[in-house]
Computed example of a mutant assay.
Amino acid sequence: MEKMLAARLHIPSRTLRMTEVDRPEPGPGQVLVKVRAAGVCLSDVHLIDGTLTPLLLEGDTVTLGHEVSGTIAATGPGVTGWPVGRRVVLYAGEVRDGVTYTRGVDYDGGWAEYALSSADALTVLPDAIPFDQGAIIPDAVSTPWGAITMTGAVRPAEAVGVWGAGGLGVHAVQLLRAVGACPIIAVDPSEVARERALAAGADLALDPADPGLRESVEAATAGGRLAAAFDFAGVPAVREQALALLAPKGRLVLVGLTDRPLTVADGTRFSYLQQRILGHYGSDMPVALPELLRLTQQGRLDFAGSISEVLPLSRAAEAVDMLNRKAGDPVRLILRP
């Protein structure tokens, strides 16, 4: 059997190793994809540092990588409509017996030379979109898209705050601009991230430590505060700050992951103002991915600036370290087999 290189995480020891493994063979209803680009996400970092743990993984080792693009290499029995060589983007997960499994978490992902996918868990990548940009759309773009359009239900001209202008938040700014939110206020402690948010379309970018933050938000919203606030940082202090800036009936959407508790400082005020806290995870892939690919193909969205660096697959551990340390303030690092 042919071998391939893969970045495999041993869950009990949280050890990431580059390993030669058997190249998988597609079974019934599956396709084999030659990986051309795979994104490195903060979720991958959290899997390695133990903050996140797979719930549905069979065994104790998994190939990481849930942001994947490539070309069809082979198809299994019963699969039609996917010719060899077709450019594709893989969904970040698959539904099996009514349960959602996350690629690169609950089953082997795309930090490898080849990856398996169910034939109904991928879509065509238009020729106009490079593999690098296509790879990040299933999470770094579709997750904030789902948070904005579905969970947060943002409407045109609504005032919106984005806490955390990193790999998800900076895309949220661009997407909020696309759906007509106004004003868009980004909040991040990093000056580089704030500048990045302004370049992506934010109307205002603030430091969360700024003692005049509340006054700045109220001035930008003509005293109306925020109809919606999005936490992409996963930090309790961020959530408390965002809650304090919500308008009546405003909603706080939690996208960043944390195992820390959330505190509502004034429950009576929260209830009186009929505010809401909404959890969000992932997106509706069959709907979101084609929408985003179409918007990108037509020039409404541009993620070229999100690709901070491309590294060979063999340097996966280095890429994880760079993202963990925020070396160079990356948005997305890409691994290329």
Rank of each mutant, 00 (worst) to 15 (best):
E195G: 07
P208Q: 02
R8D: 09
I48E: 02
P77C: 04
A317T: 12
T53N: 02
I277M: 12
L252A: 02
L206Q: 03
K3Q: 15
L292Y: 01
A200N: 07
R300E: 15
R177Q: 06
L168H: 02
A209Q: 08
A219R: 00
F303H: 10
D44V: 03
L206D: 05
A135P: 11
A205P: 05
Q133A: 10
D120S: 15
M18T: 04
D60S: 12
R260E: 12
A147W: 05
R260K: 13
A119K: 15
A135F: 15
G267F: 08
G39F: 03
R196Q: 04
F232G: 03
V35S: 04
V192I: 11
Y272W: 08
I334D: 08
V162R: 09
G201P: 04
T71F: 01
A178H: 15
L311C: 01
Q274S: 15
G70A: 08
K249R: 15
G169I: 02
A165F: 05
L292A: 11
A200E: 06
E191K: 09
A319D: 14
D106G: 09
A220E: 00
P77L: 06
S142V: 12
V99H: 04
L125T: 00
L273S: 07
A74H: 09
F232P: 03
G161D: 06
R251Y: 05
V255Y: 03
R336K: 15
S271F: 06
G161M: 15
V160R: 04
A140S: 15
G146C: 08
A37Y: 01
G152D: 07
T263W: 05
G164N: 09
E195I: 00
M18P: 00
A186N: 03
T102E: 12
L289K: 13
V238E: 11
G65D: 11
D203G: 08
G109C: 10
A115E: 14
Q298V: 11
R294M: 13
V79G: 12
K3I: 03
G81T: 05
V40A: 07
A178R: 11
Q241N: 09
A165H: 00
L168V: 04
L64P: 05
A153V: 10
K326Y: 13
L292K: 07
A181D: 06
E20L: 01
S314H: 11
Y272A: 11
R260V: 00
A121E: 11
D108A: 09
L176D: 07
L278Y: 03
E94W: 09
L246G: 11
T263A: 09
R315N: 13
L323D: 10
D49R: 02
A157E: 03
V331N: 09
Y272N: 07
T19H: 08
G39C: 06
I11N: 14
E113P: 09
A265M: 02
T61C: 04
V141T: 05
F303N: 09
E94M: 09
G146T: 02
D231S: 03
S13G: 14
A244L: 00
R336F: 08
L278E: 05
Q174M: 11
V179L: 03
P144M: 10
N324L: 13
R300T: 12
D188F: 07
A228C: 00
W145A: 08
V45L: 05
V33D: 07
S13N: 14
E113D: 04
R194S: 03
D49F: 10
P126N: 08
G282D: 10
L16F: 13
L313A: 14
A237R: 14
P189E: 06
D231V: 06
R336Y: 08
G27R: 13
V21N: 01
